[in-house]
């Protein structure tokens, strides 16, 4: 009797320690850690007070405490995996948005670079004396017009 109780208490303590350690090393974020802390505390409580599981089982109408515990663990695991699925969905959406933004930025960069090259080529080919404001402004307008027509 005492053997399995000791085992479950030890396992629960290990899980608890592991979760705390992961959190301490910043490898587990708080929103996921909370879930696991709850689970390990629950296991600890069941380990120390096995009668508690029996009482709960009687309350719900399940005959044996072990069946009730299995049911509970199943529900907890299902909830955890559902939660993870939804988090993965969030991540996918975030990745997608980031990838799209990068593509558009790269597009913008290419265009700006082409514009700049054209501008520099224009300035270099023109006489240095002419490189003042009067020639600068129209050339800028011109390059804008060509890019918008191109894009």
């Amino acid at each position: 009797m005492a053997g399995w109780r000791l085992l479950s208490v030890v396992v629960a303590c290990l899980v608890l320690l592991f979760v705390v350690e992961l959190m301490r090393r910043r490898k587990l974020r708080e929103k996921y850690a909370g879930m696991w802390l709850l689970v390990s505390v629950g296991v600890l409580v069941f380990g120390i007070f096995p009668d508690f599981a029996q009482d709960l089982a009687d309350l719900v109408g399940v005959q044996t405490a072990s069946n009730f515990t299995f049911l509970l663990s199943g529900i907890v695991l299902a909830a955890v995996s559902l939660h993870l699925s939804s988090e993965v969905g969030h991540l996918e959406e975030e990745t997608r948005t980031a990838v799209e933004e990068i593509a558009l930025l790269r597009c913008e960069l290419e265009r700006t670079r082409a514009e700049l090259d054209a501008r520099i080529a224009q300035l270099e080919s023109g006489a240095p004396a002419q490189a003042g404001d009067p020639s600068g402004t129209p050339s800028r307008n011109g390059s804008h017009a060509t890019t918008s027509a191109r894009s």
Binding site: T95, R96, V99, E100, I102, A103, L104, R106, C107, E110, R111, S148, R150, S151
Partner: peptide, 27 residues
């Protein structure tokens, strides 16, 4: 002669099209 937006990861037609729509709005 086309403008090219290159997605670093394959996103499917939906992702490609939203990129197109965003480009349209921005330009």
């Amino acid at each position: 002669g086309a403008t090219v937006a290159r997605l670093a990861v394959n996103l499917g037609v939906g992702g490609a099209m939203r990129t197109g729509f965003r480009y349209a709005v921005a330009n």
